[in-house]
Design a protein around this nucleic acid. Sequence first.
DNA 1: CATGGTATGGAAAACGAGTTTCATTTTCAT
DNA 2: ATGAAAATGAAACTCGTTTTCCATACCATG
Lengths: 149, 149
Amino acid sequence: MLNAYQIGETLREYSYKMTLQRKAILDIILQNRDKHLSAEEIIEKAKKKNPRIGASTVYRTIRLFEKIGVIQQVFLNDGIMRYHMINPDEKREHHHLICKVCGDVMDVKEDIFEIFEDQIFRKNGFTVTDHRVKIYGICKKCSEEIEYV
Amino acid sequence: MLNAYQIGETLREYSYKMTLQRKAILDIILQNRDKHLSAEEIIEKAKKKNPRIGASTVYRTIRLFEKIGVIQQVFLNDGIMRYHMINPDEKREHHHLICKVCGDVMDVKEDIFEIFEDQIFRKNGFTVTDHRVKIYGICKKCSEEIEYV
DNA sequence: CATGGTATGGAAAACGAGTTTCATTTTCAT
DNA sequence: ATGAAAATGAAACTCGTTTTCCATACCATG
Ligand SMILES: [Mn+2]
Ligand SMILES: [Mn+2]
Ligand SMILES: [Zn+2]
Ligand SMILES: [Zn+2]
């Protein structure tokens, strides 16, 4: 997974400047590697670090980090675009477990669905290059709390 | 799969009226069972049948048909909400093959991913209730055309 | 140091899909 | 036919996101 230094290098390669605002947003993204933040959530956290940061700068920086491959959009179908860091080590998209109780979103690192790709090809003549899975249900924590009640 | 008569009955059950506008929109949906139309595409086709139909009526009717279980949202991650008819015979959501060349969207009727649900539970303690799969690649027709060239 | 050109950032305006409002029209049970 | 309730279309409004505009910061030169 990329660290702050490597991302700074990437910016420099593209001859973008590492401004205070970009640094603040980058820190927020790094400190929330396991989360799937929305632009609004990033703006809120950024304003805490530096109240003089503008929403447009945050949106622009999100676009910029997308372009240089630091973050990626995740569609969780709640009408809001969310983002997670890209791990250059992952060859394939990872998938998501979405808790219907607390709304928490977890990553599924192992690709347990890969073996089905040639089954899809045999049945449909469709050559699979990629797939995304969203799995809905109840997370461990929430099912323990339900048991408890 | 529901037919026009059954949907008319359902409307009556809920004491909604079958107006000319609703009939026009229903016909469009029935004539495009295998497609995944957006609101805008429905508006365009509806205006061809009756130029005096308003966009807000189409949006309202889409909401209505969702509520009475005629259609359902499909998220194809193109930022636009799309809809497909609900087949009351399917117990589970079906999945989608999305061609990266022509953009065509096909249904995968068989649920080949079901057997993985308890594997997810064992690994993550996450109780799966539902899952959606989007499979990207190249459809049969497009790969034949590519071969040909 | 100036000088000028380019990149950046913030405020505000614009955008676009979708929703709501409201005055008017249509429907349908009586 | 009548009137209450439901439905309609145009326009206004949301709300997340993008673009525009302009002042300021940065940076390589003379
Ligand atoms: Mn993720
Ligand atoms: Mn479908
Ligand atoms: Zn939970
Ligand atoms: Zn194709």
